[in-house]
Amino acid sequence: MSELGGLLVVRGLSAGYGAAPVLHDVDLTVAPGSISAVVGANGAGKTTLLRAVSGMLRPLAGRIELAGEDLRGTPVEQLVRRGMAHVPEGRGVIGELSVDENLRLGGLWRRDRADAARALDEVYQLFEPLARRRRHLGHQLSGGERQMLALGRALVGRPRLLLLDEPSLGLAPRVVAQIMALLRQLRDRTGLAVLLVEQNVRSALSVADQGVVMSLGRVAATAPAAELRDDADLRHAYLGF
């Protein structure tokens, strides 16, 4: 059923809280080793989309496939084992646990303990500030460090697909640029696919291969990111710049 080339394939997805759906009939394809940016105004359903994809929210209708496997009925805690990592809204750093504990948690599910330890070392090399603060508690970190921790924790599980909800929120432009550069680097070096939800449209489209514009719970446009950047009408209509 799944289209050729889609790591994540979403078809006809409707989802919401209670009876009224927030998402209506959403179609989306994320190719392996690519970055897709979901952009749109507040309340467009971007976060809801990620929550539905990762199973935190049960879809009302539609199909979600990861590498050709139907994800319906898969418990949330099984999704990391299928190669999907979700860094949720607000990052989900556990403030009561240390940096090291937060990171190790990302690899606890893995059978290959040796590789989990290797992945942990790699994350510490990737994020120097975290290595210096292994014993600090999560709530003692700055916003940028928390974002590194949340990302690093997802990477310890060596995902194929990373769902990332508003990584730029509350961060200085310089830090946002670093994170976007890192995503590009991970895509190129490890073949990671990223589904990135962002309010910060410019930086999201600057790093993405594909742009998905959402409006009022529907997909208003899907196009190569470069095209979206250059399409003034679309920008004015949905993105406000």
Binding site: P75, H86, G92, E101, L105, L108, W109
Partner: peptide, 22 residues
């Protein structure tokens, strides 16, 4: 490891599920 899972599940159940904790 099981103690870490238990603490994580108590502090942040939703995030813990995303990280594969039962």
């Amino acid at each position: 490891a099981v103690g870490l899972r238990m603490r994580a599940a108590a502090f942040a159940p939703e995030v813990s599920r995303l990280l594969g904790v039962n």
